[in-house]
């Protein structure tokens, strides 16, 4: 489905919960509040018009004022894709896990927890995946401090 058509359909479908939809570099992005995320994802997966059967990745971005969690969804049947973004507060980044919809989200969410410290509620096993279990802090946060890091001179 074309991006413009998909955008219209998405806005019509989620009219009552007010989502934002923008298109940047030919990529359709919808911005959802954290309360609505699971419902929106379920609709995107199960609605026959969208059929997003594949979750490509879950990641996060550390913005100056919030932490943005990003989901890239692809429909292998309809051949279209959409990016779902959710803004969370830096103090308590918490969001519902989507492992119940796409089992592949499991390790992606663990990685996002490991590096950004986003807590995924109802995740089956939210433990660190890349760094050692006794690691302290979340290294992809901009305010991450570690005295062991040697800085590049003149950098």
């Amino acid at each position: 489905m074309e991006n413009i058509k998909l955008k219209e359909q998405l806005l019509a479908k989620f009219e009552n919960i007010k989502i934002d939809a923008i298109e940047i570099s030919n990529q359709l992005i919808i911005i959802v509040s954290k309360e609505n995320l699971f419902g929106v994802c379920r609709a995107l997966k199960e609605n026959a018009a969208f059929e997003f059967d594949y979750l490509s990745f879950v990641t996060a971005v550390d913005r100056p004022n919030n932490i943005e969690v990003v989901y890239e969804l692809i429909s292998t049947k309809k051949n279209h894709r959409v990016r779902v973004k959710v803004n969370l507060t830096k103090e308590s980044p918490e969001i519902d896990s989507v492992t119940g919809l796409w089992a592949g989200a499991n390790w992606h969410e663990r990685e996002t927890y490991d590096l950004f410290g986003v807590n995924f509620i109802n995740h089956p096993n939210l433990t660190r995946i890349l760094t050692p279990d006794d690691f302290e802090g979340f290294p992809f946060r901009k305010d991450y401090k570690n005295p062991e890091i040697v800085r590049m001179p003149n950098d």
Binding site: T131, P139, N146, E148, I149, V150, R151, M152
Partner: peptide, 10 residues
């Protein structure tokens, strides 16, 4: 990976 890394043994 000597500089600016949190995960590598030097």
């Amino acid at each position: 990976f000597y500089y600016d890394t949190y995960s590598v043994v030097k």
